[in-house]
């Protein structure tokens, strides 16, 4: 980790109570800052919050939002909610996986794209829904998937 990274990390620790109860919040802040949970950051978290490293690691793997690996510039999320499912989310995902050559949860080698599955983004009226970073795409048709991803 670079010096700047360490400064960012210190800032996160200073913004939260330095006790075991802050674990999840701190991990979320780290993920937001670095887009994933770097190992060194987890080790530092264990030390500062006085939580065994194993518990930090356990929490990092339990919650679906955390990633232990660097993620791509564009995070493509496919909603797997019920409404999206019955309107063909599986096929959207297939197109995406074959288009990008990676499986859900993986990142392309050039760190450009990551595919993630989300349970339900609460935009069921627009099913099937796909998100590219924060941008929602509703009523996605499977032959348009890659066009949406490659946009911008």
């Amino acid at each position: 980790m670079t010096q700047t990274d360490m400064t960012k990390l210190d800032k996160i620790f200073n913004n939260n109570p330095q006790s075991p109860g802050s674990l999840i919040t701190v991990l979320q802040d780290i993920q937001r800052e670095f887009r994933y949970l770097p190992r060194e950051a987890l080790e530092k978290t264990a030390e500062i919050l006085n939580v065994p490293l194993s518990k930090v690691y356990s929490a990092s793997t339990f919650y679906a939002v955390f990633s232990l690996k660097p993620r791509g510039e564009k995070i493509v999320r496919v909603c797997k909610g019920t409404a999206c499912h019955i309107k063909g989310a599986d096929i959207i995902l297939e197109q995406l996986e074959s288009g990008l050559g990676i499986k859900a949860g993986e990142t392309t080698k050039d760190l450009k794209y990551t595919i993630e599955l989300v349970n339900c983004v609460g935009a069921c009226a627009l099913a099937p829904v796909m998100l590219v970073n924060e941008k929602y795409y509703g009523n996605v048709r499977c032959d348009r998937v890659m066009k949406l991803v490659e946009k911008d």
Binding site: P52, S54, K55, Y57, S58, T61, F62
Partner: peptide, 10 residues
């Protein structure tokens, strides 16, 4: 008092 290992994933 060690918690060296833990459940991982879910």
């Amino acid at each position: 008092g060690k918690s060296a290992i833990s459940p991982v994933m879910r």
